[in-house]
């Protein structure tokens, strides 16, 4: 393609370097934290790598049942020995994770324990240190199981598992859209902040006005996107029912994978008798 011939000259200011009258003096709160926020959004925008063992494939519904069985059991148990046994069970599963994923698992798990501890800490004044330690142990074990599920199960598997367990269609669809959509909005906000940074060539006098503009823009975008998404779904024949392929029938491996949780439940039920 040949460009059209030039008809006018460029303005003079565009041909000479711009000398800025005001130089940056002090970095404000918004600018200091903008980079951290960008880092956080960037981190969230990257999906967690999923570890799947092709030779030892377990159907999604069994994975979900195992998670629920273990988490509910940990919540109900007061027997320290049984809890310790469940911790060892999880530890043996973690041994199969690749080193990089194991490192990521540990860092995510420790962060989630830290956040959970903030909510559990008041029990120190209500019931003393022994109860606090016990609660933190139980909470960290539940979080570890949830993190392990997250590291070994894709979103698609989670949705397939929910469908196989006969969860309401509307719930699965809402979850599917929300998971995709939140990541997309995060990505949009991240790119907007990068674009803003590229044009932030001096300390902003009214940073909070900018924050308002950013989030206002994000709201408008999300509203438009929601309308477009629904129109696209209707155009493809959406009638309120969310259809999804159900995994194939269960294999002996599935029952074997579920058996430790079932044994733990049996022990929980019959231990005291």
């Amino acid at each position: 393609m040949k460009p059209t011939p030039s008809t006018t000259n460029l303005p003079e200011w565009l041909s000479n370097p711009t000398t800025s009258p005001s130089r940056p003096s002090k970095v404000n709160f918004w600018q200091r934290n903008q980079r951290h926020l960008r880092g956080l959004l960037n981190h969230l925008a990257q999906p967690t790598p999923i570890v799947t063992d092709q030779r030892w494939h377990i159907t999604p519904q069994i994975k979900l049942i195992r998670l629920l069985a273990l988490v509910i059991l940990i919540a109900l148990i007061n027997n320290v020995v049984l809890l310790w046994g469940l911790a060892l069970l999880l530890g043996s599963q973690l041994l199969w994770l690749p080193p990089q994923q194991l490192r990521q698992f540990m860092s995510h798990w420790l962060v989630s324990i830290g956040i959970a501890a903030i909510f559990v800490l008041p029990s120190y004044w209500l019931a003393g240190p022994a109860t606090l330690g016990f609660f933190i142990f139980k909470t960290s074990l539940m979080l570890a199981n949830a993190q392990y599920y997250r590291f070994t199960t894709s979103v698609q598997d989670l949705l397939t598992g929910l469908k196989a367990l006969h969860c309401p269609d509307i719930f699965i669809m809402t979850l599917a859209i929300a998971l995709t959509y939140l990541r997309m909005l995060g990505q949009h906000l991240l790119l907007t902040m990068e674009a803003l940074e590229l044009r932030t060539v001096a300390p902003t006098k009214h940073p909070y006005r900018l924050i308002g503009a950013l989030f206002g823009n994000l709201y408008l975008k999300s509203y438009t996107y929601a309308l477009e998404l629904y129109a696209a779904m209707e155009a493809r024949g959406f009638n309120g029912h969310y259809s999804r392929g159900i995994a194939s029938s269960n294999h002996w491996r599935d029952y074997l994978a579920l058996s430790p949780a079932l044994v733990a439940w049996m022990l929980f039920i019959f231990w005291g008798r």
Binding site: T18, L191, E194, A195, E197, L198, T200, V201, A202, K221
Partner: peptide
Amino acid sequence: LADAQRRQQLHQRIGMVFQNTDVQLFNT
């Protein structure tokens, strides 16, 4: 790039138009 002032000076000298220009426009 961790230094905000240097970063701003760099951005004054290098401009970029994004592939998705939606994210680049946020004013009224």
